[in-house]
């Protein structure tokens, strides 16, 4: 069976001065119906860019490659087809709930708007908006739906954003760091909410995060992104038990774990490169503790390894020796 979403050789360029700057550089992945995929990586690696490209949210970007959703080529869609896809094919939750709601519109109207756009009558759209807000744990949803965003706490706002993403019945939910901006206490609540809602509806989920700690209990598969490329991909157990890429190991080492009393492994030194100054060869080589001479010269290709794949010269060599 064809996967729900299939992304091939995705490239994204942002306008820079007279030319373009490549921020996502040949990304491949797919998500099956009902599958949970986590996309992890440090800040600036191109996670949000990738997610927004799925819905073509930014007009100014140049997007190359292929994005097939439910059998249709997204990059070939007309603007009208895109509008139909956004909201009812793919729903999206954004990073900052404080900033992702229109401050001048009542929250109920903002949720109902997704349906109104699709021709649903005012009363029915409103009733369904209230129902989904209630389902997502907004108390007194009927009266609270008349309130404005600033009257809601961060956690409550994220529920409203989630309601907006889900109300038109999409098949894929893209959640771009849905809990990063929230209190630690609220984070798990919201994550559980996404978990339940997705399970009830059998949704495919792309969860973007730079916090590996929340990935283990949520995702089936993990994509690790570094400087605009996927460097490792595999089932969640394998990624945690036997990470093959030095960068993935670094990320996992940096996760605080309650069951680990011994000294944690040191987190990765240095900062991720800017897309404008991507290092030669393996983009990770300046920070890699196990770098080989070849890493400076040639970029490693993503090749199958175990149940997933990895793009690393050292991992390839180890595999060949084993």
């Amino acid at each position: 069976m064809k996967p729900l979403l299939e992304v091939r050789a995705l490239t994204i360029d942002v306008p820079k001065g007279e030319g373009w700057m490549r921020v996502v550089d040949g990304v491949d992945f797919s998500i099956g119906a009902g599958e949970r995929v986590a996309l992890v990586g440090e800040s600036g690696s191109g996670k949000s860019m990738t997610a927004r490209a799925l819905m073509r949210l930014d007009d100014a970007l140049r997007i190359g490659g292929a994005i097939r959703f439910a059998g249709e080529e997204v990059l070939g869609c007309t603007e009208a087809e895109m509008r139909a896809l956004r909201g009812s094919g793919i729903g999206m939750v954004f990073q900052d709930p404080m900033a992702s709601l229109d401050p001048f519109m009542r929250v109920g109207d903002q949720v109902a708007e997704v349906l109104r756009i699709r021709g649903v009558g005012r009363a029915e759209a409103h009733a369904r908006a209230v129902a989904i807000l209630a389902e997502l744990g907004v108390r007194d949803a009927a009266s609270r739906s008349g309130a404005y965003p600033h009257e809601f706490s961060g956690g409550m706002r994220q529920r409203v954003v989630l309601a907006m993403a889900l109300v038109a019945g999409p098949k894929l939910l893209v959640a771009d760091e849905p809990t990063t901006a929230l209190d630690a206490r609220i984070q798990q609540q919201v994550l559980d909410l996404i978990d339940d809602a997705a399970a009830d509806r059998g949704l495919g989920v792309l969860l973007i995060t730079h916090n590996l700690g929340i990935v283990a209990g949520f995702a089936d598969r993990v994509l690790v992104m570094y400087s605009g490329r996927i460097v490792e991909e595999g089932p969640v157990e394998q990624i945690f038990a036997a990470p093959a890429h030095p960068y993935t190991r670094g990320l996992i080492a940096a996760v605080p774990r309650a069951d680990m009393r011994v000294d944690r492994l040191p987190p990765i030194d240095g900062a991720p490169p800017s897309p404008a100054r991507r290092p030669s060869g393996c983009a990770f080589h300046p920070r890699c503790p196990v770098r080989l001479p070849v890493c400076v010269m040639t970029a490693p290709q993503l090749r199958p390894s175990g149940g997933g794949s990895v793009a690393c010269h050292l991992a390839a060599a180890e595999e060949a020796m084993a």
Binding site: R86, S100, M105, V114, V161
Partner: peptide, 26 residues
């Protein structure tokens, strides 16, 4: 250019709706 415009677009709103119903009141 505000952050809440992308979420509106992600709902499937047309450019006209984004402008008249969201950007204009703001």
């Amino acid at each position: 250019a505000s952050d809440f415009i992308a979420p509106v677009k992600a709902k499937g709103a047309s450019t006209a709706r984004i402008l008249w119903r969201h950007a204009l009141p703001n």
